[in-house]
Design a protein around this nucleic acid. Sequence first.
DNA 1: CCTCAGGAGGCAC
DNA 2: GTGCCTCCTGAG
Length: 320
Amino acid sequence: MKIDSKIDIQMTQESGQTSQPPWKMINNSYCSLIFPNNTPILLKISQNNINSLNITTEFIDSSNEKNNEKKPIEIAIKKKVSEIFNLDFDLDKFYKFLKNDDKLAPASEFCNGLRLFIAKDPFECIISSISSANNSILRWTKSIDEIAFNWGDIYKFKSGTFFSFPKPEVLKDVFETPEDESKYYEKPINICLNNLKECGVGYRSPYILQTSEKLTNEIAINDFFKMKYDEAYETIIKFKGVGPKVADCILLYGFGFMEAFPTDVWIKRIISHLYFNKKEITAEKVKDFGMEHYGDYAGYTQLYLFHYARKSGLLQKLKK
DNA sequence: CCTCAGGAGGCAC
DNA sequence: GTGCCTCCTGAG
């Protein structure tokens, strides 16, 4: 299968977006477990040129690959890939927008083909974003993979073994510390053998448990898809461990709210460097500036500015 | 080569 | 304004 669309899959995978850890690389393909039409499928994506993606898949039961059910599932797979990599977004139109602003023009060249990496599982994105606060990319991505390994469902394919990210109703019951494991008899065996602290999430473990609890008993994940930005923001920021920056990451990468402008310390430095003559301004003002100035391009502009600054060396310069 | 302080895509208090 | 889990980095 082939999808014709402009994207740099490697840059997109490795740009540190908090929707999920980068996918496993097997034989030069980015591989992930997805569930189109509720069917577990191993998706394998490779790329020869920036204008198209090569897609191959594996099923659990290889007999499925030959039967005549194949056509509808192919359509569902393409749709899913298109959602995850935001392929309907018109990049060339966005580049015209960037080139209209002298401050943004360099980023459009530098990040050619970079796209939003939207969550394949919004709950995974929520936990990823909470875990990313005051943390390094390497560390939070290892934690998320560890959580899936411990409590997700196992799926074995020819190319390798993959784990789904656990549902909130499973994660809410897992143990926080090794000491909790002594109470193993109170809970099902699959959640007794490991604990959150050993996944390296540190002091964020109570936030992860409370969030899983809320998403089991108070709010359904899918409710966020029905909300406008303001309502979704006010709802998610009430969660423990979710502040302004993490809230916007969840809305942008988890639910595709393109108008979100996640403002961390780096974006703050970049924006004040570019637009405010290096004067220190608050994160809140930077967020407002981004949302007003860039509108529906706010999320993409944040992604491009951050990636440009990180990879071009501008961040290192601004640090000093 | 080892040790250890400082810092990391912020948040709760 | 401070402390925070834990891992990584770099100065000494």
